[in-house]
Design a protein around this nucleic acid. Structure first.
Length: 256
DNA sequence: ATGGCTTAGTGCCTAAGA
């Protein structure tokens, strides 16, 4: 099976690209989507189901919003972090083919001196606790999404420029490591990868053409799943399209 | 050049993203 994550930056705008992408990937089993930016009544459920997908979603106006699409039925669907009271719709969890998949849109944080930064750190602490609890119940677990953290300097196009900025600060990276310490592997780093591999590029400054990006979208796999993982790739093709999302999808492949 | 673009809503500018 293949597990993917993609921050689409508005599902309303990107739905045709998402459906095209899914149609071209018959091996894909489950896709976690972030930043749908849609209230539930406006979610394009019929179009997605017509394409042969099961779907669950939780959203709000303008910001955030997450969805999970699956070829197999979505079981035991859970919305948001049960241990963190939060009006922002950022998490969706479901069991697919015996695999527990947590799709997360981690808080951006905006800047180190923003009030959103301590919110980000507290939010990730709750995600860590929730993932620990889920992992105890479901040894076959994938935590995927837009983490808004570049784990290492090699995940940053220009580490000097980004030094001490949000997305790379030590408290954020320590929390990313705390997630790994629960017993998760960054599937992308299980394999040899090209240098300067990124999953997000700024719309401005010709970021994509210059490959001035960050690797902030991740597929983390429990040890049981990591043992089955045969590959992980970032698909840059959708980023080349007209009117792209600023993020590229990340796909991990698991042997049966 | 500490910004350039893209999105949605309050709507023709503003806030936010990363």
């Amino acid at each position: 099976m293949q597990i993917a994550t993609w921050n689409v930056n508005s599902l309303k705008v990107r739905l045709p690209q998402v459906l095209d992408w899914l149609a071209a990937r018959p091996e894909l089993t489950v896709l976690a989507i972030q930043e749908t930016k849609l209230e539930d009544h406006a979610f394009p459920r019929a179009e997605i189901e017509a394409a042969g997908w099961h779907v669950a979603f939780v959203g709000q106006k303008t910001y955030n919003g997450v969805a999970m699409l699956s070829r197999l039925p979505l079981e035991d669907v859970q919305f948001n972090l049960p241990n963190f009271d939060d009006p922002q719709k950022r998490v969706i969890t479901a069991t697919v083919g015996g695999v527990r998949v947590i799709g997360a849109y981690v808080v951006n944080g905006q800047a180190l001196d923003s009030e959103k930064y301590p919110y980000k750190l507290a939010w990730i602490d709750a995600l860590i606790a929730y993932t620990r609890e889920q992992l105890a119940q479901y040894p076959q677990l994938a935590l995927v999404g837009d983490f808004n953290i570049a784990p290492e300097d090699r995940d940053v196009h220009d580490p000097a420029k980004w030094a001490n900025d949000v997305l790379v600060s030590p408290p954020e990276r320590e929390r990313f490591q705390a997630l790994l310490d629960l017993g998760l592997k960054d599937s992308f780093r299980l394999f040899e990868q090209a240098e300067k591999s990124f999953s997000w590029w700024d719309y401005r400054m010709m970021g994509f053409r210059r490959n001035a990006g960050l690797r902030i979208d991740h597929v983390l796999l429990s040890d049981a799943l990591a043992a089955r993982c045969t590959g992980c790739e970032i698909d840059k093709e959708p980023r080349r399209l007209e009117r792209p999302s600023d993020h590229a999808p990340v796909i991990a492949t698991l042997a049966d």
